[in-house]
Every structure is written in C-alpha cells, then in structure tokens.
Design a protein around this nucleic acid. Structure first.
Lengths: 232, 232
DNA sequence: GCAAAATGTTACATTTTTATTAAATCTTGT
DNA sequence: ACAAGATTTAATAAAAATGTAACATTTTGC
C-alpha cells in the first residue's frame, strides 16, 4: 500500500503544524485545513484518515463529519474527533455519526499518534477481512435471515433455497414490514416494468415462500382486499 | 408512555442487585440476567434499554449485542456497555456494533444513572423526530386502534378481523369523529364510484363493525335522518 | 300513543378474493 | 439440444367478503 495520507482539520495553526511534523515523522503524508470549509475544497477521497476538531467556528466538525459520512465516496474514511468539550453527549454524538475514535483535549502528541496508528491498523484489517462490500446488507427477523449480498436465505441457521422472484418478494415484504402492500405495489417493485403478469402469480409465489421459510411462513399475512404484508 | 423497562446483564450478582435497586429508585422497572444466555431466554423486545457487561464467560457481551442489533425486532433497543477493560479497541468495537454508550469500570452508580437517563432521552427524541417514513398511520381512540398501514384493528390489544369495507368504513368514521356523516358521503368515500348499493348495505356494515369492536361499538352513533358518526 | 319512517338484525345467496396444485413455458448452463 | 430449475399460467378448490331481502325494533312527528 502507498503512503497513508492524513488530513488534519483544526483552527489552531500551531497545533496543526505540530501534528503535521510529528505525523510526517512517523511516515505519513499530512495535509492541513484550518476550517471545515477549507477542508471541503480538497479532494477528501485521497485521505486514509481525518483528524477533525469538533470545535470550529464556521461549519462545526460534527456537521462536516456528517457530510462525509453521508457521501458514499467518503463514508468509509475513518475520522478521529479531537475535542476540548468533554461532555459525554458530544462524545457519543460524534461516535454515532461514524467517527472511529475520539480524543479529548488536552492530549499529548504521543497519544494522538498512537490513536492514528490504531485506527489505521483497524480499518486496514476491516478492508481485508471484515468488509468485503459488507454494508449491513442483511435483513433478519428472529431466526429468519436474508443476506442481500449473497442472495441467501437461512432459517434458524439452515440454508433455504429461494428462487430469485421468491427472494425479492420476501425482501420487499420484510423491508416494509408492518405495512400491507397491494398487489399493484408488489408487481411494480418485484416484477418491475417487465412483463405484465397476473395477480395470481403473486399468490403462487407467496405460497411457495411461505412453505419454504417454515415457521416464519405465518409472518406473511394476507389482508383480503388489500394485499400482503409481513408481521412486525 | 409507560414505565421504562431496563435489562441488566452482568455476571456479578451483587453489582446487579445494586444497579437494580438504584434504577428502580429512579422509577424504572429492572430485570436482571447473569449471563448473555440467560438474557436471551427473555423477551428482549419489552425493554427500553439494556445495560450489558462486555466481559462475561459464555457468550461475550459483544456477541450478544451483535445478535440483538442484527434482529430487526431488537435492533433499535439502545445498549450501554459496561466494561472493566479500558483498551480503546474494545471500546470502539462496542460502539461500532451499535452500543449507544459505554461505561468503564470502576464507575459510580450516579454515573450509570446519568448515562441511562441520557440515552433514554436521546432515543426517545429519535423516535419522535427521526423517523420520517412514519407518519400518522394509526388512528386510536382509547383502546381501539386502527393501524392504517397494516390494515389491522385491535381492541384493547387483541386483534379483531375487519373486512375491507368494514375497515374503511370505521376509518372514515373515526377520522371524522365528532361529525355526522350522511349515507351519501359514506357511499362516496367508502364505496367510491363503484357499483351503486342500497343504503341498507351501509346499515348492515355498521352493525357488523359495531358488534366486532365490542365496547366501542356504542361509539358509533346513529342520528336518525342524518347518518352516522363517531363519538368524540 | 300512534302510524310512518328510519334503522337494526339476521340469514342466506352471490360475488370476490385467495390458496393450491399441476401443467406449460421460459431460462440457463452444459 | 438436453436437463434442471425458475417462472408463469391455468384450473380448481376454498375461504372470505359483500349485498340483499325479510323481518324486528327504534325513532320521529303529530
């Protein structure tokens, strides 16, 4: 892997310089921004890690982090929050938006470097084993699991083979659990604009899915005159 | 909202008891489990919050938390991790799997309670404003509930099967409660432009609904010469 | 209070909707 | 082109919903 690039965002210039020097000394490439706005003019995607001060004037560090986490291109870049505020709520809020660590001021340089290394090590591992395009893309209701990535369905641990339409139908129902979906909705979502099929086709697929997922079959409910739904 | 229920999972019995006493003193209902396995025999969905010791023998707290977060039925229940291990990696790992806070031992009871309150306050807010998809999709009059999404009617908690026309008729009446609706209005709203049916048909459906919703049947009032309405 | 009108109730016929099964058609990989 | 599996249709059974008629009861206007 190439040299890791780190972006430091803090409005205290001296602190930035000190961090830059020390991190470069550890073999990282370091860029600096004195505000969130300035940082956002850069191509964020080139960095492996962002050190972000939560207490800045213009756009708060929190807001910036949220923007980065909202964009798929930058969502996976780890962020370490630095903050002088030590209230627990701030800390937790930061972590909820995807910060991978936080450091409270006053902190030692040695401390910062240790955390940087730790986070980079962790995210590198993630990318290798823990995250092969893994995005929580799994639906689970008790013992019924749908792996949306591998298109796999397991019932209490044992695999159940669902055909494509069956899988998509069940996925649609579960991801809208608690709502009754009309046949029209089901057709437009599962069968798309493709061929037009009869409503009976849905019923047949409902029957098959029900029988395949065992106990959980009864979670699929029929509301005569309305459509089908998945029990919440 | 009813009393908040909290589940404490820790293998130190004395600690559990102390937590239980103190939390109950704050007005919470508290249950205890001495292991993750024991905890999993309970109906987790009834709790508003889980205090989970990360360091337990059988199934680690981490594993239990992961299971809970994977199941849609329990995924939204906040978890506070308690741990004696203070390495940052453990902490971050915990937060990554969806723990809503963490507390490191040794901690004071006062501290725990403060965090419990903080987390409950935060998640309560979440439920109110954070869920845009969830609008007013339910009509409720005392113990009579109409889930407009799931097309489900419950009377004091027990489901009552309403046929489509019955459901829509009741929905119409309740959503205009306090007003008397003429048969003409009812026909145009519930029966739409469909076939023209006799006025007797409405009466019959009124009767059916009345008898199905038990006590609340008398909430549907008749104004001779005008129509029907739902008591406000 | 009485007759007329309006509404309530019940049982039953009819229609709609859903479930199930088997067979026909389409796909896909070999 | 064949075989295996997926998907749709068709046919039928089963279940549920709905409407109507006939009659009972209540309400209304006098």
């Amino acid at each position: 892997m190439a040299v890791e690039r780190i972006l430091v965002v803090d409005d205290e210039e001296t602190l930035c310089e000190v961090l830059k020097l020390n991190l470069e000394n550890e073999g990282y490439d370091v860029d600096i921004a004195f505000s969130a706005e300035q940082a956002l003019t850069l191509d964020i995607t080139q960095y492996s890690l962002i050190l972000l001060d939560i207490m800045m004037g213009d756009i708060s560090g929190v807001k910036m982090a949220k923007m980065l986490k909202a964009d798929v291109n930058t969502a996976d870049i780890p962020i370490i929050f630095c903050t002088a505020r030590d209230t627990e709520d701030d800390m937790v809020m930061g972590l909820n938006i995807g910060a991978d660590d936080y450091i409270m001021k006053p902190y030692t340089i040695r401390n910062v470097i240790a955390r940087v290394k730790s986070v980079l090590r962790r995210t590198r591992n993630h990318k290798m084993c823990d995250t092969p395009a893994e995005k929580q893309n799994t639906l689970q209701v008790e013992g019924l699991k749908l792996d949306l990535e591998f298109k796999r369905c397991t019932v209490d641990g044992v695999e159940v083979k669902l055909a494509r339409k069956e899988f998509e139908l069940l996925t649609y129902l579960i991801s809208h659990r608690g709502k009754i979906l009309s046949r029209e909705q089901i057709l437009s979502k599962v069968w798309k604009e493709e061929v037009v099929v009869l409503d009976r086709t849905i019923d047949v697929n409902i029957t098959r899915v029900r029988s395949k997922i065992g106990t959980y079959g009864s979670y699929i409910v029929t509301r005569s005159g309305f459509g089908y739904g998945f029990r919440d």
